[in-house]
């Protein structure tokens, strides 16, 4: 049932660009990138029980990596793009090594602090990062310069990455992660090195966030320091919670709804952050399990009235 739904969504995604204007194709690419970003975040929160408040570090590093390696270091665009998730993974090894020793709010604060450090570097190291102005001119030339082609490129990578994460959470590693989330003490006493599993999860999540960042950078054509700011770390949290952190594809739904809401509301009023905040607040209050909890809720409702 669930995989049938996911298959249908994928089919729809394949036909989508032929029905959309160029503007909406860009929005669809944004949804794809942020869906991967939110899923990578939820690997940490929903499956690993680790609330990172600095996940934007890896999205931002992925974006800056492709920009710097391509535009400043002179690599080809493809190589720079392929290197972006690896650079994000390396940064995640360092940040993760220093952060996963702590749990709960201390872990959140450490990830937050490291991300702000990177934000500061992006602002101040102008020779490398372009400072305030960021790096622009990142539109791919050639085939990928065509929005429809880039859409399929993003769809392929995002779907493949999300599938890999799906395999991971169902694998022995994922079982250990699920056990770790609920009872790390017990898990150590079945022979699992809890800290190394936390670190590995953090690095995988970081690498995929880096991929998402690189995907989005080449679509928008630029990268700005703001992508590394703390508000950017709130985005995947809101997306995941909005869609439902207990469902694997919940964050995908959350990302789509979030991006679409932002587009629609910001076109109508300059107070869109306020309106957006209110809408999200209402949704979260009404649906504690996120939008993906809605299906279950409806089913129960129907069954309830059917019996009564």
């Amino acid at each position: 049932m669930k995989s049938a739904l996911a298959g249908l969504a994928l089919l729809a995604a394949l036909g989508l660009p032929f029905a959309l204007s160029e503007f909406w194709i860009f929005i669809a690419i944004e949804v794809l990138a942020f869906a991967l970003y939110a899923v990578s975040f939820n690997l940490l929160l929903g499956f690993g029980g680790m609330l990172s408040f600095g996940h934007a570090a890896f999205f931002g590093v992925g974006a800056y990596a492709v920009a710097i390696l391509w535009k400043k270091a002179g690599l080809t665009m493809v190589l720079a793009f392929a290197a972006a998730p690896l650079v994000a993974a390396l940064v995640a090894i360092v940040i993760g090594y220093l952060s996963v020793k702590r749990i709960g709010i201390y872990f959140a604060m450490l990830t937050f602090a490291f991300q702000m450090l990177l934000y500061t570097i992006a602002l101040k190291a102008g020779w490398l990062t372009g400072g305030d102005d960021g790096i622009t001119g990142l539109k791919p030339a050639g085939l990928l310069g065509d929005p429809v082609a880039y859409y399929f490129f993003a769809l392929l990578l995002s779907a493949a990455a999300i599938y890999l994460i799906h395999r991971l959470v169902r694998s022995p590693f994922g079982y250990a992660l699920q056990a770790l989330k609920g009872n790390p003490a017990r898990l150590q006493y079945v022979g699992v090195d809890v800290r190394r599993h936390r670190l590995a999860t953090f690095v995988v999540a970081g690498a995929f966030a880096g991929l998402a960042g690189a995907l989005f950078a080449l679509s928008s054509g630029n990268v700005f320091p703001n992508w590394l700011n703390w508000t950017a770390s709130a985005t995947p949290i809101v997306m995941a919670v909005l869609g439902g952190i207990h469902s694997f594809l919940g964050p995908v739904v959350g990302a789509a709804v979030y991006v679409l809401l932002e587009v629609v509301i910001s076109g109508k009023t300059e107070y869109w952050p306020l309106v957006m905040g209110c809408v999200i607040l209402l949704l979260v209050l009404a649906l504690p399990d996120g939008l993906s909890g809605l299906g279950q809720l409806l089913r129960r409702q129907f069954r309830g009235t059917g019996n009564g």
């Binding site: 991971l168 694998s171 056990a179 898990l187 079945v190």
Partner: peptide
Amino acid sequence: SVFAGMSVLENVQVAILGYRGQTWRPWTPA
């Protein structure tokens, strides 16, 4: 102290995987 959110069978499976150092497998369905 058990893994409360997992099934009884999964509790023992994850324990066996852990003791054998097999929790690093990222692909096979557990």
